[in-house]
Structure formats: structure tokens, C-alpha cells
């Protein structure tokens, strides 16, 4: 490897890592600051964490986010699983089907969100969870579909054939052979869809009604109102949850290999 002969790649990379991590560190650091102004460090305290734990609007928003993410995760994973099974064999029009299923990945979310808002107003659906759940399911479908599809692609078809040779009917083959083999892909798809829905801000921002604020929507309006250590504390908790999820899936991947 003569890569080291290309100068400065190491230095730039370390700089990029600093750029990626310093803002996050600063954010976490100030969440433990006792001072209200959040600029001047006075002393370490957990006051802000205590405050957000008893704040009813934050509790409600967290609950809404979890309900929404669970519904969107389950709904999109089921739809994506069926679609992945249906697209297992190549057929004419497969490219079109996949392009439609993956469209939410490419389309700008702000455009889809306002367009959905117009549709729901036109057909008289009230804003709130009833509007957010279907919209979230729709844009989570590609996030669930891609891992399931990848898993299905890597599967050995002779296993299913062997099961059928041994007189398993279609249903038994699916339940005992196909499904267990696909399980890691299904779990990966669900996790991805769940996290995508949990992190979503724009769609929820346009489609949430009174009483159905999600955590990202709450955080956005709090940021708009001004910088406070409470936002730092919520952000830190969300950060820890995300990092825990990523690191866990990384370690699971290592073990499986």
C-alpha cells in the first residue's frame, strides 16, 4: 500500500473527524451546565435532565413519536416484505415497480409533505396521527424494502426447493424455511423504518395536529423559541439512543460474521 505517499489525506481526515464530532461534544457538554443562559459554564448539574423528565409536553411528544414510529415501522415492513417476495423473480416492469417503491428516497421531503397536506385537506382527513401514520408508512417503505430485498437476493433457492422435495407445502416452506432465513433482513428493515420515522421532522411538521406533536416537531419549535439547556438535554438523550442503535447493529454484524 503506497497510499501514504499521497500527502495530507491523514491530516484532512482527522480534521473531518474533529469537524464531525466537536459540535456534538459541545452540545453534550452544555447539557450538563447549571447556568440557564447556556453560554457561561457555571457548574455541572443534571437539572435539565430532571426538568425534561417531568415536562408533560415532552412526555406526550415522546409517546406520540413512539406510537407513530411503531405503527409506521410495522406497516411499512409488512408491505415491504410482501413486495420483496413478489419481486423475487425478475419480470417485465420490475424496474418500474422498484422505481415507484424507492421514489420517496429521492423526492424532496418538503415537496411530498406539502403535497400530502393538500391531498388530506382535499379529501377531508384531519391532521394528527390519522394523517401522519399513512404518510410515514409510505415514505418508510423503501427503508424496509431495501434490506429485505438484499437478504432475499443472497438466499440460496435450493433450500426452498429441498423443503418442497421433502413434501413441505407452500405454507410450511414459507413458515419453516423462507421466513427464518429472511428474518435478519426483516429485522434490519424494521429497525431502519422505525428509526427513519422516529427521526422524521418535515412530514410530521406539516401533518401533525393539536395534541399530536412528535418529539422532533417539539424540538424544532423549542429551537425556534431560543437556545436553552433543555434542548441540549433532549438532544443528548436522542443522540445516545441513535448511537446505541448504530453501535449495537455494528456489533451484531461483527458477531454474525
Amino acid at each position: 500500500m503506497n497510499l501514504r505517499r499521497l500527502p495530507f489525506t491523514r491530516e484532512i481526515s482527522l480534521g473531518v473527524l474533529v469537524y464531525l464530532y466537536v459540535p456534538v461534544m459541545v452540545l453534550i457538554f452544555y447539557s450538563f451546565n447549571a447556568n440557564r443562559t447556556a453560554t457561561v459554564w457555571s457548574e455541572a448539574s443534571l437539572d435539565w435532565y430532571r426538568k425534561i423528565l417531568v415536562n408533560p409536553s415532552i412526555r406526550d411528544a415522546t409517546w406520540n413519536s413512539l406510537v407513530l414510529a411503531t405503527a409506521a415501522g410495522l406497516g411499512s415492513t409488512l408491505l415491504a416484505l410482501a413486495a420483496a417476495l413478489g419481486t423475487k423473480n425478475r419480470f417485465r416492469g420490475l424496474a418500474v415497480v422498484e422505481a415507484i417503491l424507492n421514489a420517496p428516497l429521492i423526492l424532496p421531503e418538503v415537496v411530498v409533505a406539502v403535497a400530502t397536506l393538500m391531498l388530506f385537506v382535499a379529501i377531508g382527513i384531519d391532521m394528527g396521527l390519522t394523517a401522519m401514520i399513512p404518510a410515514h408508512i409510505a415514505f418508510c417503505i423503501p427503508f424496509a424494502y431495501l434490506p429485505i430485498r438484499a437478504r432475499l437476493e443472497g438466499m440460496n433457492p435450493s433450500l426452498e426447493e429441498a423443503a418442497q422435495d421433502l413434501y413441505a407445502n407452500r405454507f410450511v416452506t414459507f413458515r419453516r424455511v423462507t421466513l427464518p432465513l429472511m428474518w435478519p433482513g426483516i429485522m434490519a428493515g424494521f429497525t431502519l423504518a422505525f428509526v427513519t420515522s422516529l427521526d422524521d421532522f418535515l412530514t410530521s411538521f406539516f401533518l401533525s395536529g393539536p395534541g399530536s406533536t412528535t418529539l422532533p416537531v417539539y424540538i424544532f419549535s423549542a429551537i425556534r423559541a431560543g437556545i436553552t439547556p433543555e434542548i441540549n438535554a433532549i438532544s443528548t438523550i436522542m443522540l445516545i439512543v441513535s448511537v446505541a442503535l448504530v453501535v449495537t447493529s455494528f456489533l451484531l454484524g461483527k458477531i454474525r460474521r
Binding site: 413486495a83 419481486t87 423473480n89 419480470f91 421514489a103 420517496p104 415537496v111 403535497a115 399513512p134 417503505i141
Partner: peptide, 29 residues
């Protein structure tokens, strides 16, 4: 499960396709 018939295939793909078309395609139109 091998060699799914076109009809079965449609049945499996249709729900996801309809949801995306109804909640992304129709709004854009």
C-alpha cells in the same frame, strides 16, 4: 415459493405499490 405466478406476484406487490402511489404519486399530481 418458486416461480410465483403473475397473479400471486401482483397480489404481493400491489399493496405497497398502491400505498406509495396513493400517498406520494396522487399528492404530486
Amino acid at each position: 415459493m418458486s416461480a410465483a405466478s403473475p397473479l400471486r406476484r401482483m397480489g404481493l406487490v400491489a399493496p405497497a405499490l398502491v400505498i406509495v402511489l396513493a400517498l406520494v404519486g396522487v399528492p404530486l399530481a
